[in-house]
Design a binder for these strands. Structure first.
Length: 567
RNA sequence: CGGGGUGUAGCUCAGUAUGGUUAGAGUACUUGGUUUGGGACCAAGGGGCCGAAGGUUCGAGUCCUUUCACCCCGACCA
């Protein structure tokens, strides 16, 4: 491509709405432009990056014998009614009617459609397993799209679905997909972590998220500083605590604690570590039908993890309870404890099981119990409720947990029969019995990956594309196109690179050196070959974008040098 | 969906408090000239329904009402 003919509208200023580096630089460098909230146009450079990522995904899927399909974007609403998701998805599902008044939706994900194309066609265990995927635009009418390409309403996703006759076979395919996804991200040149994730209300197992590590990520990850363990904090586990503070010695007693309500106050008042106090968090749990107040207890040194709490009782949502709601049912805010109270459902963190020497509220204003032995609560509902904190022990090794931020670019998930059963997608097993398909699902956010590359690879000058994601690997920049010998050399180099299959752009614009260099840095080509006055000495220069280092090489060796730098 | 903010030239923004010639700047664009290794300089130009609708007024970018869009925080997010 010749730059002079390319449509690459770069700008000095970022759109005022852009906050994230990926949004700012992708806009400024002319990769994308915004159309409306959460909707973006991909301009030529952006489209090239998308296609490069798609190509890598296709290649790795081919290795796994996964087959690409292309399902219709507009899907009949009946399918969604059949699976029961039309209500669950709510307003995120964009619906509309055609001229015959039939209701349709724009596909936000394609489980239903994919199940639909195999049901009644794949009818025998002999036809399994099967792994089908597509790379396609999805639409979710998000309440609040933001962060540029990171969270759009319309986005490109690779969504794959596998069908199996047994859970063992699903496990095998799941591992193969995890390995393939890992290879994809490695090839893209991204630093990432595969983490354990929350399975959500749908159930299923083996939920794993692929997280590109970047400070602007929306998800908090708990990762081990020693081993490979990593998990979304929503699902993170930790080792049993070993550095247990010295226990306070006190016999069981009811103790007057005037106006001592918070964990801090309590721990100062009794001079005990918060580890020995019990924190009560009351939430209104919302279910499909109705709601109730639930009190969660964790140790004073811990925080309640909301997703874990929600999962522990199968609620759809938790909202903070107000003091008025507590008082109404006869609870005493600031002095709540699990003992001797039957006014509210309680759930206790696993770490409080059989805990001794505890201090907890006495369910009476200005009184706490001390010296509590929680083994009396052995019939209570225990669950993992506490949020894993930095410094906690890794559940797999002796390492320590650290927190880091990640961008979720992939999510793989064992669905089991969650969709195949309600949609009656069945095959006959060896015994001639009808069984629903056992399914896995494998998603990867392709347009989000474009943004993720830049979130992880940029500097104050602009984008820094990795070789696998760059719109062009090499930019040949002619310092002054009026120098005929320089231009002739550049043309020759351009032709040679094109012939050997290098993705190359020739910056033949009638612009000054500084202007073209700034564009090269903003767009972020991995290598810019500068052809200018050095050519009179038989040399050219290569600017390595990642470091902005400029090296001088003999004009005859420039191609082999580029090859060397790519390694 | 709750709270906050912003809509004026392709882009980034002044101007709105206190209504008053022909609505400005920078940048980008066009033409001519000079320059040519880090976003050049000089000169001359083109470009606006001041988000939309209604109202108040002799007069509205500016005041009032309604509405739409976009952004931020939160809720939500296979």
């Amino acid at each position: 491509m010749r730059f002079s003919k390319a449509y690459i509208p770069t700008t000095k200023e970022a759109p005022k709405d852009a906050q994230l580096p990926s949004h700012i630089y992708l806009s400024r460098a002319g990769f994308v432009s915004q159309v409306a909230a959460g909707l973006y146009n991909f301009l030529p450079l952006g489209k090239r990056v998308l296609r490069k990522i798609e190509t890598i995904i296709n290649e790795e899927m081919a290795v796994c014998d996964a087959q690409e399909v292309d399902l219709s974007f507009v899907t009949p609403a009946e399918l969604w009614e059949e699976s029961g998701r039309i209500e669950k998805f709510g307003k995120e599902l964009l619906r509309f009617r055609d001229r015959k008044e039939n209701l349709f939706v724009l596909g936000p994900t394609h489980e239903e459609m994919m199940v639909n194309i195999v049901r009644n066609r794949v009818t025998s265990y002999k036809q399994l397993p099967l792994n089908l995927y597509q790379i396609k635009t999805k639409f979710r009418d998000e309440a609040r799209p933001r962060f540029g390409l990171m969270r759009g309403r319309e986005f490109v996703m690779k969504d794959g679905y596998s069908f199996h006759a047994s859970t063992e076979d699903l496990d095998r395919e799941f591992d193969a997909m995890e390995a393939a996804y890992k290879r994809i991200l490695e090839r893209l040149g991204l630093e990432f972590r595969i983490v354990e994730a929350d399975s959500g209300a749908i159930g299923g197992t083996g939920s794993k998220e692929l997280m590109v590590l970047a400070g602007s990520g929306e998800d908090t990850l708990a990762v081990c500083d020693t081993c490979e363990y990593g998990a979304n904090v929503e699902a993170a586990r930790r080792a049993q605590r070993t550095d247990i503070p010295e226990a306070p010695s006190a016999d069981f007693a009811r103790f007057r604690t005037p106006n001592i309500k918070s964990i801090d106050d309590l721990s100062n008042f009794f001079h005990v570590d918060p580890y020995y106090t019990l924190k009560a968090v009351v939430q209104r749990a919302v279910y499909i039908e109705g709601s109730e107040l639930v009190c969660f207890f964790v140790r004073g040194c811990d925080e309640l993890q909301e997703v874990k709490a929600r999962n522990s009782i199968g609620a759809i949502d938790l909202v903070d309870a107000t003091e008025a709601e507590l008082i109404e049912i006869g609870l005493v805010p600031g002095f709540m404890g699990p003992l001797d109270q039957d006014k509210i459902r309680i759930v206790m963190d696993n770490d409080t099981k059989n805990a001794t020497s505890m201090i907890c509220g006495a369910n009476e204003a200005d009184y706490h119990f001390v010296g509590v032995d929680l083994s009396v609560m052995h019939e209570a509902h225990f669950a993992d409720l506490a949020s894993v904190q930095e410094g906690d022990g890794c559940p797999h090794c002796n390492g320590k947990i650290l927190h880091t931020k990640g961008i979720e670019v992939g999510h793989i998930f064992k669905l089991g029969t969650v969709y195949s059963a309600p949609l009656k997608a069945e095959f006959l097993d060896e015994n001639g019995r009808a069984q629903p398909f056992i399914m896995g699902t494998y998603g990867m956010g392709v347009s989000r990956l474009v943004a993720a590359v830049i979130e992880q690879h940029h500097d104050e000058k602009g984008c820094i594309w990795t070789p696998a994601t760059a719109p062009y690997l090499v930019n040949i920049m002619v310092s002054n196109i009026k120098e005929e010998s320089h231009m002739a050399y550049a043309e020759e180099l351009y032709a040679t690179l094109q012939k050997n299959g290098t993705e190359v752009i020739l910056d033949d614009r009638k612009e000054r050196f500084g202007f073209k260099m700034s564009d090269a840095e903003l767009i972020g080509f991995p290598f810019t070959i500068i052809i200018g006055k050095e050519l009179d000495n038989g040399s050219v220069q290569i600017m390595i974008r990642a470091t902005r280092e400029i090296i001088t090489v003999d004009a005859s060796e420039v191609i082999s040098k580029i090859g060397e730098l790519c390694k």
